[in-house]
Nucleic acid binder design. Structure first.
Length: 477
RNA sequence: GGCCCGGUGGCAGAGUGGUUAUGCAGCGGUUUGCAAAACCGUGUACAUCGGUUCAAUUCCGGUCCGGGCCUCCA
């Protein structure tokens, strides 16, 4: 049983072999903080959080680094629009990102380096590139990477230099020797943040920060580098050129790229303006805690490399599925199981096998649903030992995906732990009063009145479930 | 234009050269005073046209359609 991962570099699934036994170094390109995170960002956050959890569940010691880009053209533009200092803008959106992450149950990375905190190592790397003849200062003062000097250029995106040139739009007003060259260090313009450097005051180009920070945090050569599909070219291609050019060593073993979130079959992006922010989606739900998990579950419900088309009703479907899992989990007390039966082991094996196949989370989740059915069956058969055992397995496996972490009754809105009393919903005591009346009506076989009360509560979003012992349970939808 | 990826039942979404994915929704049944939940059962699903094969949704080729990258973008 070995984990295999699709490597964008070789375009194949490959057995995953950490460089050092038992240890994994992983770097993911994070956010440029000039706005709130949207669903596309949520996908990167959740997908790689899942990857880390799966690796750790296999006993691997993972060092997970995800950067923050806190200096760049867009941020400068945004700060000007808002008439705010740059660092006020970035720190606000960094805080917002951390809130969004928490709502999605995404664990913080082990390190979260920021570009502005690594200017010196960026400068050092640019200098090395220049010394090696791979970089030059152009006529406009900017420093560029000389793409033609790096033999492997195009390997990741699967393109030759000539192909790239055909498609390239010729940029004017730049001091490049070759249109394919890209900027490493930008000369400061008036009223822009800048740092002193051998090439004059300026700031880093986008690509170089990731090369500098990843090698500084994880070493010249590490295991996994991830990010969105759109970063494959040019960003990651350029990172390889910079890092390997500077160190002379192989940079990354496995490149992972997640697919896009789409809306109406079209990529969700800032530039198209068709994005949904995480916080808006959370705010749209009467229960934001639940909504965060629903979004996470929705993301895990499709394979990370496939497009995820967001459409009406899709969140409701995800929610209904989670409800089912939580309802089953609720039947089992949260205590560790004793012996593991062969049956439970086979579910665990199926779950592992699904994830072994390039993190096939939809397939793994299918196993969770099978467990839920078994729990329900065992519960009806009053086999409490089996319920406990299956329940523990469900919880343990769900944990690997970072789902089913809330209290089931809370998630399901059952009883007084629910949102009763807020947002126009009756308070728990008001509901209990109506239930007492209904109970009397039922005892005197006045079913018309009993049903009237049920309908009344139903309209207010309170659902009733009569239990065999005559009591009634209620939940807020 | 160049280079990639994909088209699975009402919806979402895995997978496989011959056998049930899974979930949501629907329908029938068990249960219930009635419900809800749960359980059981239930769908001529694999864009299209050719080819390979005893057998193709699954492999190969063409066609059509959709998406992405080539420019900031997760």
């Amino acid at each position: 049983m070995t984990l295999s991962i699709y490597n964008s570099l070789s375009r194949k699934k490959e057995p995953f072999q950490p460089r050092a036994t038992g240890r994994v170094g992983m770097y993911v390109c994070g956010m440029t903080v000039y706005d709130f995170c949207h669903l596309g960002h949520a996908r990167v956050l959740v997908v790689f959080d899942m990857v880390v959890r799966v690796l750790r569940s296999r006993g691997l010691e993972v060092r997970y680094v995800r950067n923050i880009t806190d200096i760049d053209d867009k941020i400068i533009v945004r700060a000007n629009e808002l008439s705010e200092p740059i660092d006020a803008v970035t720190s606000r959106f960094i805080d917002a990102m951390h809130e969004d992450e928490a709502a999605l149950n995404v664990m913080p990375p082990d390190e979260e380096p920021r570009a502005t905190g690594h200017i010196q190592s960026i400068i050092d790397m640019v200098r090395v590139l220049q010394d090696k003849g791979l970089a030059y200062q152009g006529s406009n003062g900017d420093v560029y990477f000389r793409v033609r000097k790096f033999p492997g250029y195009g390997a990741l995106s699967g393109r030759s230099l000539d192909e790239l040139l055909t498609g390239a739009r010729v940029e004017k007003d730049e001091g490049k020797d070759d249109p394919l060259d890209f900027v490493l260090w930008k000369t400061a313009k008036a009223n822009e943040p800048s740092w002193p450097s051998p090439w004059g005051d300026g700031r880093p180009g986008w690509h170089i920060e990731c090369s500098a920070m990843s090698t500084q945090c994880l070493g010249d050569h590490f295991d996994i580098h991830g990010g969105g599909m759109d970063l494959r070219f040019p960003h990651h291609e350029n990172e390889i050129a910079q890092s390997e050019g500077a160190t002379g060593k192989r940079f990354v073993n496995t490149w992972m790229h997640n697919g896009f979130v789409q809306i109406d079959e079209e990529k969700m992006s800032k530039s198209l303006g068709n994005f949904l922010t995480i916080r808006n989606l959370l705010a749209d739900d009467p229960d934001p805690n639940r909504a965060g998990e629903v979004i996470r579950f929705l993301i895990l419900l499709s394979h990370y490399r496939s497009p995820l088309n967001f459409s009406d009703g899709i969140l409701g479907q995800a929610r209904a599925g989670l409800d089912r899992l939580y309802a089953a989990l609720r039947l089992a007390p949260a205590k560790p199981a004793s012996a593991l039966s062969a049956e439970v082991r086979s579910y665990e094996a199926a779950f592992q096998q699904a994830l072994d196949d390039d993190f096939n989370t939809p397939s793994a989740i299918a196993v969770l649903f099978e467990l839920a059915r078994e729990i329900n069956k065992a519960s009806e058969a009053r086999d409490t030992a089996l319920v406990d055992e299956l329940g523990c397995a469900l919880k343990r496996l769900a944990d690997v995906l970072g789902i089913l972490y809330q209290d089931p009754e809370r998630f399901l809105g059952i009883g007084s732990g629910s949102r009763s009393g807020v947002d126009g919903i009756l308070s728990a005591s008001e509901i209990e009063n109506l239930l007492a009346e209904r109970r009397q009506a039922r005892e005197s076989r006045d079913f018309a009145r009993a049903d009237e009360i049920r309908d009344q509560l139903e309209q207010m979003g309170v659902e009733l479930m009569d239990r065999p012992d005559g009591s009634t349970e209620w939940r807020v939808r």
